[in-house]
């Protein structure tokens, strides 16, 4: 078993609010893991701790075998230096709820900027790869378009291509369809489904129960900053054990 991500005993506090309470989560290579749960349950916070958008209060994070964060015996959390954090986190790619595309760059530039600047890729190669990624998300014709000229679904597909351009070992999706109109979530889900078939390692926070059930190898249910239940989609959706998951699913369906 090869772990791409290991999170051990993760606690995250915002002041006195406990957002994550001793959470353990590992993701294997090629696995698609979906995290579901009510709003405010800590799903997004957990995801944001993976790539250092949030710093944990205690626990240990290991990305592709290298330690991003650890806690010593006195409860003091330490992270490596900033450049090292950047290097470790570049193993992750992230797709945000609100896309966060760079509005002053066209789609191809959005995709190629980081590979050229961070990895020092030759711009010609980067562009070639950028075009291949545009093809993957079905937006070859939009290479020269600016984000303001795209629909929400198209923006999110470009954001996925941008995340993939850095060749991450794991893709993090933070509610990728929550800001979209229901009729266009499909085009984004199709792209993610395609990635799952290609065995891209993914950690997906989502409210799309049907999608989680169909695409995930494993589903995690969180509530109040803790993992309440986890298992295969069949176990989670067909035979939920905990009372909280049962009532959550009842409310969602």
């Amino acid at each position: 078993m090869e772990f791409v991500l290991q999170m051990q005993n993760i606690t995250k506090k915002f002041g006195t609010l406990v957002a994550l309470d001793n959470v353990n989560l590992s993701v294997q290579k090629g696995e698609t893991v979906a995290i579901i749960g009510p709003s405010g349950s800590g799903k997004s916070t957990l995801l944001r701790c993976v790539n250092h958008l949030e710093r944990i209060t205690s626990g240990r994070i290991v990305i592709v075998g290298q330690e991003l964060a650890n806690t010593n015996e006195y409860g003091y959390v330490f992270y490596p230096k900033e450049a090292e954090i950047r290097r470790l986190c570049s193993n992750t790619g992230m797709v945000f709820q609100h896309f966060n595309l760079f509005p002053h760059m066209n789609c191809l530039q959005n995709i190629c900027y980081a590979p050229i600047k961070v990895k020092g890729e030759n711009p010609i190669d980067a562009n070639k790869r950028g075009l291949a990624l545009l093809e993957l998300v079905g937006l070859t014709s939009k290479a020269e378009a600016y984000p303001a000229q795209l629909s929400g679904g198209q923006k999110q597909r470009i954001a996925i291509a941008r995340g993939l351009a850095m060749d991450p070992k794991i893709m993090l999706f933070d509610e990728p369809t929550s800001a979209l109109d229901p009729e266009i979530t499909g085009e984004v889900l199709t792209v993610i489904r395609q990635l799952a078939q290609q065995k891209t390692t993914m950690l997906i926070v989502t409210h799309e129960m049907g999608f989680a059930r169909e695409v995930a190898d494993r589903v995690i249910f969180m509530d109040n900053g803790a993992i309440i239940e986890e298992g295969t989609p069949a176990e989670i959706f067909n035979t939920p054990k905990s009372e909280r998951l049962q009532s959550f699913l009842r409310a969602m369906l």
């Binding site: 760079f102 002053h104 900027y113 995340g163």
Partner: peptide
């Protein structure tokens, strides 16, 4: 928007790359 900083960070851009490549042009 702080999402621009987060996107830049998630792509591994350094602080100065983020400032001069992403934030200041906007």
């Amino acid at each position: 928007d702080k999402g621009q900083y987060e996107a830049a960070k998630s792509l591994g851009l350094s602080r100065s790359q983020t400032m001069f490549g992403i934030i200041i042009p906007q």
